[in-house]
Design a protein around this nucleic acid. Structure first.
Lengths: 270, 270
DNA sequence: TCTGGACTCTCCCCCGGGGGGAGACACCAG
DNA sequence: CTGGTGTCTCCCCCCGGGGGAGAGTCCAGA
């Protein structure tokens, strides 16, 4: 039986942290003296404490740590851990993109932007639509795209897929997302259903590369729109001209970004 | 002039976050209406907002973001960013170690531990000693080792370097650290000074590999000590038999860990 | 010019995962 | 028995975000 201080020395977890783990049901002392409240640990609990330590070093949330420790058989546990390692991998990719994008931002001269005004006609498409949190966009997107592909089969010449992004997604961290593929006769299957996209005027530009870096292009497009005195309204549209479905070379990816505008009153623009 | 909502849509930073950045002096709106308190941004501020966004994605603390943005010339700014990228790299290395160590922890059978009881005589060494926070141990260690080497010259046959770690380092996150190199006539130079290390009884084992994984070995050693009914007292000792100064192959590194014990009363152990 | 809806303001509370410190009690060796 | 050290609980603070209330502002349409 070890008092909390000894156990702390053995595991290199601070006393405070051990207490917190107790409260959180993560690591229950083998014995808690009913009268004094003193926590007593067994040496057998050292490995568990160290697993927790490692998982926390990997930023695994305490709730997930609890699930991992509570997993019945070792295989299940390994699966849960593997899941987190996958997440870690994704995090890493995100970091890489952020770094390169940061370099681009800090580079002295930003490449000038090609912006085009385009009248987008009303069109009926096969679409999946949901209310999604900003953190879940990636996951949702992958699932929705898979479902669209399952419903429509391999890519046709009807055109590339696209998406509509509710503004509140950016302003409040969650909002409606709609992912579509053009289709002459959209089926109804699972979450996929026919949706009529309204006609809009768009200020359109093309983003090159990883989608995670698109916000920079958004900013450039946005300031173009502001500078060119057009008013903004409605969800942003994207169209995936070339994406991970087409090639693994992310430098070749092309995303069209369409910012809804009202055409300036006086005559035809351009 | 853009209201906060528009600016939020342009930068993909939430309204709340923009307000927070204003409060924190990170991103001052170009104009704040004195009577209404409304914040108005200029499109020219979009790039700055996006730099902040990227830095935050890289978990750069807001204070540091402020410093980076406040940096006078671009070179200084680039240097500050580079500094953070280095930190990111270190983080990455830490993650790698944690992952492999986690695998080892979850592996079914832990390798049995060779533990030896050893009477360490009093010895005078050249040492650097400081009160250090747990997060700064790595940095401190590198600096102290460099200073020792500067004072004593290249490695001699007087023996490998070692360290003493105050227990409160583990219990409370900060404590006294002492790094030494054996030396027949310890010099006094900079932070380096002669120190008399008291004699101790140690339970000793050897940790193989990255030092970041040593806590697992600590736990094993500790539970050996507990099981073998010896009492614990005083700072832990380490001795760096093979380390990064000797070879780049971290698998070959050897750290001796000595846990202070009182020899059991009844006769000589072993 | 008024009105209603959308926008924005400030303020307070919450989250997670830690830390600091006060004041009271428990343990244990001399 | 006594004093020092260990441990308890409790409250506050940190960071960088989010939720929501309640009040004030802006602006387009009638």
């Amino acid at each position: 039986m070890l008092a909390i201080g000894e156990f702390s020395r053995l595991t290199h977890l601070s006393i405070r942290t051990l207490r917190r783990y107790h409260e959180g049901g993560l690591l229950e002392p083998e014995l808690v003296d009913a009268s004094s409240g003193y926590r007593y640990y067994s040496p057998d609990q050292i490995p568990a404490a160290q697993v927790i330590h490692r998982l926390r070093e990997l930023d695994v949330p305490l709730v997930d740590v609890r699930r991992i420790l509570g997993a019945a058989d070792p295989e299940q546990r390994a699966a849960l851990v593997a899941e987190h390692l996958v997440r870690l991998e994704a995090e890493l990719a995100r970091t890489r993109v952020a770094v390169s994008s940061l370099r681009r931002l800090l580079a002295p001269e930003p490449a000038p932007l090609q912006v085009e005004l385009r009248a987008e006609p009303e069109v009926t498409v096969a679409a999946v639509e949901d209310e999604v949190g900003a953190d879940d966009v990636g996951t949702w997107f992958a699932g929705a795209m898979a479902e669209l592909d399952a419903a429509l089969g391999p890519p046709t010449d009807a055109g590339p897929p696209g998406g509509l992004y509710d503004n509140s997604l950016f302003e409040h961290g969650h909002g409606r997302l709609l992912l579509y593929r053009p289709s002459p006769e959209p089926p109804q299957r699972g979450r996929v259903r026919p949706v009529r996209l309204p006609a809009v005027e768009l200020a359109v530009t093309t983003h090159h590369g990883e989608h995670d870096g698109a916000d920079v292009t958004y900013g450039q497009l946005g300031s173009w729109v502001v500078a060119n005195a057009l008013t903004v309204a409605g969800p942003v549209r994207e169209r995936y001209l070339v994406g991970p479905r087409d090639t693994d070379d992310s430098a070749a990816w092309r995303t069209e970004i369409g910012w809804p505008v009202f055409r300036v009153a006086s005559g035809t623009p351009r």
